[in-house]
Structure formats: structure tokens, C-alpha cells
Amino acid sequence: MVQFLQQIVNGLSLGSIYALIALGYTMVYGIIKLINFAHGDIYMLGAYVGFICTVQLGLGFFPALIIAMVTCAIIGVVIEKIAYKPLRNATRIAALITAIGVSYFLEASTQKIMGTSAHSFPDVLGTQTFNVLGVVISMKQIIIFVVTILLMLLLQYVVQKTKIGRAMRAVSVDADAAQLMGVNVNATISYTFAIGSALAGAAGVLVGIYYNTVSPLMGLVPGIKAFIAAVFGGIGIIPGAMFGGFFIGIVETLVTGYGSSLYKDAVVYIILIIILIVKPAGLLGKNVKEKV
């Protein structure tokens, strides 16, 4: 039982990271129906910004987090403007291939600037741990989880209760009608990229302090896992991405804890395949026909 709870605690930390990345995938997909394959690399950039802030500038955790989020938001918006916006009316496959191109570009640029090898991240949060009935919980895990929950609450507030959130939802269901209300569709898409990328940036900083390392290709695997989490929860559905992220994170740690880490990816893929067969729109998705 203690071991099980321990795995759940570990899974929640990993799941937090996946969930934060998955949110950006799902929001961008919701609004422009693009699988933004460069999203995992935004997360990697966030980790590097966090690294630079803490190691080279000597800043603390929270300033580093904020700076990484802002930087990633700006990068996300610029990428959308340069790479995706000109393809707004092109085929989906053209945009998808472009996204893969952007992904390579970000990875190669980071390798060029920061070098190809990994850097180690300092322990900005200390190594304090708590023992709760035999379950070891570290300060880092608590902070990762709390920051993630706070960001999710903030996101829910913005999306559900504010004008810009309503505009984002309106554009994602009916861009023309939103335009007839006076919504600036391009600006709304930019906001969506900004928010999604900021969340990925936060995930990058959190993962940096969790695993104490950053590298140019670190976005690849978590990017894919977060994408699976988004599809699992129902792509385009925000609570789906949150749930999917935590679920995938917990499954991975349980498989690693009880079986072998060799199997963890396979299990995640099998779950995805089952979901796609049983409920193609994702766990929280409605199985609606595509609107004509």
C-alpha cells in the first residue's frame, strides 16, 4: 500500500508536467485544428530559460518561472505568426509538416546556441523531504503539484469567466460567427498560443528542477506523451488534457514501480490505442460527427 501511494505521489508530479504540456496541445488544436508538433520544443525552451535564469542570472524559482512563461508565450505567438498563420487556409497536412519543421528548427537552434549536451539544473528548491505514513514526499513534488493546480485554476478562470476566454471558445466553435460579433480572430488565436506556450514554459522549468537536467532534445518524449494525454482526454477539451496528463503520468510511474521502466511507453501506447478504438473522441469527448 505504501509503495502504491508512493507511486501515485511520484505519478502526480510527472502527470503535472504532462498535463501542463497537454493543455497547450489541446487549446491550439481546439482553435485552429493544428497538432502543434513544435509544442514539446517550447517546453524545452522553457526549461532552458529557467536554467539561464537560475544558473547564469542567479534568480530564484518564482522569477525564473515567470520569465520562462513570458518568454515562451512570446515565442509561441511569433511561431504562429511566422509559420502557421500563412497556412491558415492551406491543407492540414501542410500545417502539420510545417509544425515538424518548426520543431527541428527549435531543437537545432538550441543545440547551436547551448551545445548538444545536457546541462544540470541547480537545486533551487532544496532537497527537503517529508515522510507521511511511510510515503516520502519531496518539497519539489509539492511545489510542482501546487504550481500546476494553481495554473490550471487560473486557466479555467480565464477560459470560463473572462471575455477573452469566451472569445477563445467562440472562435474555436465558429470563427465566422465570432467575427460577426466583432471578435478579432487573429488576436484570439495569438492569445491561445501565448497561454498554451506559457503553460509549456512552466512545465519546462518544473521538469528542470525535478530531474535537475536540461537538454536540447528533452522535449521529444514528453511532447509525445502529452500529446497522447490530450488525445486520451479528448483533444480540444481542456479538462480532458488535465485529466489525461495526470492519468498518463500515474500509469507510467505505476508500470515503472511494479513492472519495469522498459514497459512504461508500451503500456501508454496500448492505452491510447484502446481509447481510440473504444472512444475515438477521447475520454471526455463527445462522439459527434464532424460539422459540415
Binding site: 471575455k163 469566451r166 472569445a167 471558445r169 467562440a170 466553435v173 465558429d174 465566422d176 460567427a177 465570432a178 460577426l180 460579433m181 466583432g182 471578435v183
Partner: peptide
């Protein structure tokens, strides 16, 4: 618009607020 184009997934109240965007 033709065909109404209300925003599905948003409440009636939210739809009305969109009009006053």
C-alpha cells in the same frame, strides 16, 4: 447569419454576452 450560428457549448447567457463583445 443564415442558419443562426449560435455558439454551441456556451450557455444562452454567454451567447448573449458575445453579442455585446
Amino acid at each position: 447569419p443564415e442558419g443562426r450560428h449560435i455558439f454551441p457549448g456556451m450557455t444562452v447567457y454567454e451567447n448573449l454576452l458575445m453579442g455585446a463583445y
